Computed example of a mutant assay.
Amino acid sequence: MKPPFRADHVGSLVRPPELAEARAQFADGVLTAEELANVEHKAIAAIVRRQESIGLESITEGEFGRDWWHIDFLTQLDGVTTRANYGPQFGGAGDQPPVATVTDKVDCSKPIMVNQFEYLQSIVRATPKFTIPSPSMLHIRGGRKAISSDAYPELDEFWADVSAAYRKAIVWFAAAGCSYLQLDDVAFSYLCDPAVRENCRRNGDDPKPLARRYADTINSILADKPAGMTVTMHTCRGNFRGAWVAEGGYEAVAEAMFSIDVDGFFMEFDSARAGTFEPLRFLPEGKKAVLGLVTTKVGKMEKKDLLKRRIDAAARFVPLENLCLSPQCGFSSTHHGAAVSEVGQWRKLELVVDTAHEVWG
């Protein structure tokens, strides 16, 4: 079966204590980059074997080489740095993610994270899956305010440069053999929330055309998608140590989002924050919706029968053969830790696999 698989997952996994300790020692200058890489590789090898042992067909490196799911990639693009967060806040999370900030012309003059994919590919038996942030992550939190007016007096040129940079990045992944790439994009889910739309206005943007702008940009970067590469997109309402940013159903953005020419959409549906399944009626024929029904925000286990009933409810809008199952987000989007334990993480992934087997065979 071509990805996304009936039982799939978003990507990030809980960092084991030895990796967290090694990253802290590296930050303090106690470990060298090579020594840290050795610890990372050992930890990644362990989670690869565990993913394969429970029956997952897509295997990730857990984003173990990153501090943040998005910032580590974005700041390796030319012209991008960070500032302290002044965008939408994660409720009750304390520390807040920094905001990607554009200070000069955006480009991709070197491969980004391809070495991390190559290590993953070298040790997997199943399909290696790699995740990168969507281009909209350069805009949604900081907006016009976070993009230099000197570098980009007009945003059309900014989006053109972003598209060109991402096309280069994807070509490098393809050249390394990547056949399953996921774009992580919280922007569409964020735009469902009136508070986020108001923040867009404060940042100098009209929120009404943003979903279409983001969709057009993603379609632009995929216009010359390498043959044989599956690309999916994940969207959720934020996941930072169990906290979130946005609430609201997908109705306001569904048509624009589903116009994106990816092979599947990983969508958060673990709580009332995500609304109903009704917007799935806009899913184009032949595309897959991966239902994020298993939460990564709390450790309490879902009931298999409830998951099956919810899959049946979604199947009223999308044929069952075009649906898949996953957690609603990664388990540890940042290095700070997670709301679910390592043990709980594997139990939830086993639940996804077992439920998918019973529903689809």
Rank of each mutant, 00 (worst) to 15 (best):
K2G: 05
K2Q: 13
F5I: 09
R6C: 04
L19K: 02
L19V: 15
F26V: 08
A27R: 13
D28F: 06
D28V: 07
D28S: 15
T32H: 02
E35C: 06
L36K: 02
A37L: 14
E40N: 07
K42L: 14
I44P: 00
A46I: 12
I47K: 03
V48L: 11
R50G: 05
R50M: 15
E52W: 04
I54S: 04
G55H: 02
E57P: 00
G62M: 11
D67N: 10
F73S: 04
L74V: 04
Q76H: 10
D78F: 01
T81L: 06
A84I: 09
P88E: 12
G91E: 12
G92K: 10
A93H: 03
T101L: 05
V102H: 02
D104N: 14
C108W: 01
K110I: 05
V114P: 02
N115H: 14
N115A: 14
Q116N: 14
F117R: 00
V124A: 07
R125G: 12
T127V: 12
P128T: 09
P133A: 10
P133L: 11
S134T: 10
L138M: 11
H139T: 13
R141T: 13
G143D: 09
K145N: 15
K145A: 15
I147N: 01
I147R: 00
I147E: 03
S148V: 07
A151T: 10
Y152M: 09
Y152L: 09
P153A: 12
P153N: 11
F158T: 04
V162Q: 01
K168L: 13
K168N: 13
W172K: 05
A176T: 06
C178E: 06
C178V: 13
S179A: 13
D184Q: 05
D184C: 10
D185Y: 03
A187K: 00
A187M: 08
L191P: 01
L191C: 04
P194E: 11
V196A: 07
C200K: 04
R202F: 11
P209E: 10
Y214Q: 08
T217Q: 05
T217S: 12
T217L: 15
N219V: 10
L222G: 01
L222D: 04
K225Q: 12
P226Y: 03
T232R: 01
G238R: 01
A246C: 11
Y250K: 06
A252I: 11
S259C: 05
I260C: 03
V262Q: 04
E268I: 08
S271R: 00
G275Q: 06
T276K: 03
E278K: 09
L280V: 08
P284W: 08
E285W: 02
E285M: 08
A289D: 08
G292M: 08
V294K: 00
T295C: 07
T295I: 08
K297H: 13
D305R: 11
L306C: 09
L306M: 15
L306D: 15
L307H: 02
R310V: 07
R310E: 15
R316M: 13
C329H: 01
T334E: 08
H335F: 11
G337T: 09
V340N: 02
D354Y: 05
A356Q: 05
V359S: 07
